[in-house]
């Protein structure tokens, strides 16, 4: 029994030591290197398996009764640091224009009135923040696919990038979608939220709704939409502000 007891002590000492090593080890393994690359490869597995399972299915839509009584605004609450946006905001975006350019046949400048004159889609959907909370709201605006169609994407276009007026420090907010999410029927440029003009805190004059993605994809204060062949060479090259700044996954489906 003495033998067994000392072995027992050894085991528990080993367990405590292993616990300490585990913590230090996990932090070390999080640093750039082969193990982190292995962890990061899971994003590709999510992307391909989820696309395979969901196809072009629509995100769940809700009834008015399901809506959040108070929809939390998140991220930047204004784009006051951007002089152009600030002056447009002061004039209720009356002569604001959305620039659509990059790998397109016909670069466009679309006023808010022009966007409102297009066929509209209204949807009551759930907004899922990467932090874990959810809010349900009603959104209305033209489908991004229709905007892209009128600009005419060139065959080399692979990604649609959303350049925003807001920034954190000196880093402007931007996000990107591939062509499948960009052409998804529920991907709209919302100028209306819960039946009223999109509030400043939620990204006036327009914000992107990409309903099968987490909240950070839903770019606010969108000023320019650019079609690109690659995300490389644009800011940090990872396709979005949070992707560059914090390492959030570009595929925001989970």
């Amino acid at each position: 029994m003495r033998d067994s007891l000392s072995r027992r002590r050894l085991l528990s000492a080993g367990a405590i030591g292993a616990g300490g090593l585990l913590l230090a080890g996990c932090d070390r393994l999080s640093k750039p290197g082969p193990f982190r690359s292995l962890l990061e490869s899971a994003e590709g597995a999510h992307f391909h398996s989820q696309r395979l399972i969901i196809g072009d299915a629509l995100a769940q839509e809700f009834s008015v009764a399901d809506m959040s009584p108070n929809f939390r605004a998140n991220g930047n609450r204004d784009a006051n640091g951007n002089a152009a946006w600030l002056s447009h905001s002061a004039r209720q975006f009356a002569d604001w224009q959305l620039r659509v350019d990059g790998l397109v046949l016909r670069p466009l400048d679309l006023s808010l009135e022009a966007l409102k004159a297009m066929p509209q889609r209204a949807q009551i959907t759930r907004h899922d923040c990467v932090e874990g909370w959810s809010a349900i709201g009603k959104w209305r605006g033209p489908q991004l696919g229709a905007v892209l169609k009128s600009a005419g994407l060139l065959p080399s276009a692979r990604y649609i990038v959303f350049h925003c007026a807001d920034s954190t420090g000196t880093s402007p907010y931007y996000e990107s979608l591939d062509l499948i999410e960009a052409h998804h029927p529920q991907t709209i440029l919302a100028w209306e939220m819960n039946g009223a003009a999109l509030p400043i805190a939620h990204g006036a004059p327009i914000r992107l709704r990409a309903e099968r993605q987490l909240g950070y994809k839903h770019a606010k204060y969108v000023m320019r939409i650019e079609a690109r062949a690659s995300l490389a060479g644009l800011y940090g090259g990872k396709g979005g502000y949070w992707e560059d700044a914090r390492g959030y996954q570009w595929w925001a489906g989970i």
Binding site: C26, E40, E131, Y248
Partner: peptide, 18 residues
């Protein structure tokens, strides 16, 4: 994991080990 705040790194671990 990790021991200091990082939602991005925690999701990296969590979603890979899932």
């Amino acid at each position: 994991i990790p021991s200091t705040y990082s939602l991005a790194d925690a999701r990296l671990w969590h979603l890979a080990f899932a």
